[in-house]
């Protein structure tokens, strides 16, 4: 790999972006790469907009991804995809969970949730993959498994063996939730 791989995971606090980034980090280590994973804790985790970055390659310097630098964006929520589309590389791709979670300014009626976000993102020329990860997560047994469904979708689009992905999931997820997450991954992988 001549250039580093930059993956951004965006979502809402509580959607499991942190866990997803750690699975990706462990996957990249298993490939023998230098890896950096950046997270934000504290205030922004309280239902706010959450971003994590995973970068891997021969040598990674900045743990953070700048605008126009992401090869892949995994968006767990539609509005968050809209917010961070500027971070996608011109030849990158964005995987969007079609789920919508109203932010507080929408709940209070101060603003409206924008309509037709996915069409608007497509209109910019970005490569978009839509996924109903919420439905798949529900089929797996828990609506909160959206994150691992999305990971499965991503895995199916890479040339890294599925076994290696599953090994990274196994290594990262607490044993208690492993079965659920494996199921969610498989469902995402076959979407």
């Amino acid at each position: 790999m001549s250039q580093n791989m930059n993956i951004m995971i965006v979502g809402v606090g509580g959607q499991g972006t942190l866990l997803t980034s750690r699975i990706l980090g462990n996957l990249a280590i298993a490939q023998g790469y230098d890896v950096k994973v950046s997270e934000v804790h504290g205030m922004s985790q309280r239902g706010g907009s959450v971003v994590t970055y995973v970068k891997y390659g021969e040598k990674v310097y900045s743990p953070v991804i700048s605008e126009g630098e992401a090869d892949i964006i995994l968006a767990f929520e539609t509005l968050e995809a809209f917010r961070y589309i500027g971070y996608l590389k011109k030849d990158g791709k964005i995987l969007i969970n079609t789920q919508q979670i109203d932010p507080m300014p929408v709940i209070t009626g101060a603003v409206r949730y924008p309509e037709g976000i996915i069409e608007k993102i497509k209109a910019t020329g970005a490569r978009v993959f839509e996924v109903d990860a919420l439905a798949a997560a529900a089929r797996a047994g828990n609506a909160k498994a959206v994150n691992v469904v999305m990971l499965g979708v991503l895995a199916a689009q890479t040339d890294i063996d599925k076994d290696k992905w599953l090994a990274a999931v196994e290594q990262t997820v607490p044993p208690k939730f492993l079965e659920l997450n494996k199921k969610a991954f498989e469902l995402g992988y076959s979407l």
């Binding site: 809402v12 605008e67 126009g68 917010r83 589309i85 500027g86 932010p103």
Partner: peptide, 19 residues
Amino acid sequence: ETEKFTVSEAVPGRPPVMC
């Protein structure tokens, strides 16, 4: 300037909230 995708409309904020 880094080349990037832009959308013209304002994206509603998502401030942190009490659980």
